[in-house]
Design a protein around this nucleic acid. Structure first.
Length: 252
DNA sequence: CGTGTTGTTCAGTT
DNA sequence: TAACTGAACAACAC
């Protein structure tokens, strides 16, 4: 999401909207295409911000809110040639166009007038995972009783960590994904916090989760995934309703 | 044709 | 209440 934010900031921020084309009305969630166009045409896109996996772009008196589901993205096209496959909404800007695309339509685009709260769209979100300090992070786990992977991915607790990031953080902290939170020692919680900081720092620097040497995510989808640390076989299990990759030798 | 998928939400259950 | 499970959404790839 940080990558999308920077992409929008680089290509679209500061440009005036000339028109909006809604190719699939289903992904514009809370207003009609006509109402969206009425709200944003003539406005200049402001500097985007991010809270967890939500992208917020101020525009005139309101803001556009984007969520990308599992398969969404943004694409900037300077010249009027073909849009990306699965483009759902196109913002025609002075100097180019910004396409919102999504194969599966699990995310969407919202328009929020100035007097509406972000929470109306996003639901309750915890503080952003990249913005909090260690004390706040550890405190978030204080009352949790479930599995650590579920807690990490709970957006109401801490916003921004999804399936892949949670696996990567747990692997780095050497904690198994199904470990009950109450069984984590103070030391382990601090290791989790250190892993959280390092994984997010590196991911935000690159604009995506690295899938390279020394990263568990490089093994996701491999025929026989190997732990980058101990070379043991990586397990693939269902934890907290999602596919978890983890190393049973390193993660206890 | 069946299975799995980077996210979220909801109903139902423990 | 907290938290879990499964289904739903949607559109593929394999």
């Amino acid at each position: 999401m940080e990558g999308f934010k920077r992409y929008l900031a680089r290509y679209a921020a500061g440009r005036r909207v000339r028109g909006v084309r809604v190719l699939d009305a289903q992904v514009v969630r809370n207003v009609s295409g006509a109402r969206l166009a009425e709200a944003v045409v003539g406005c200049r896109m402001g500097r985007p911000s991010r809270h967890g996996k939500w992208l917020i772009v101020p525009l005139c008196e309101g803001r556009l809110v984007f969520h990308f589901g599992m398969t969404g993205g943004l694409a900037w096209t300077g010249r009027p040639d073909g849009e990306p496959r699965w483009t759902r909404v196109v913002f025609e800007l002075v100097g180019g166009r910004l396409s919102y695309h999504a194969m599966r339509k699990l995310g969407g685009v919202w328009w929020l007038a100035a007097d509406r709260a972000l929470e109306e769209v996003t639901g309750t979100l915890g503080p952003d995972a990249a913005a909090i300090d260690g004390e706040c992070f550890v405190a978030a786990f204080a009352e949790r009783r479930g599995r650590v992977k579920a807690a990490l991915m709970d957006q109401r607790l801490i916003a921004g960590i999804g399936n892949e990031l949670s696996d990567e953080i747990l692997w780095r902290a050497r904690i198994r994904p199904d470990k009950p939170v109450p069984q984590l020692s103070r030391q382990k919680l601090e290791a989790l916090d250190a892993a959280r900081k390092e994984v997010l720092r590196a991911s935000m620097k690159r604009g995506r989760i690295p899938h390279e040497r020394g990263w568990l995510q490089g093994q996701r989808g491999a025929r026989s995934p190997r732990c980058p640390r101990c070379r043991g076989a990586v397990r693939k299990d269902r934890v907290a309703g999602r596919t978890a990759y983890w190393c049973p030798r390193c993660q206890r």
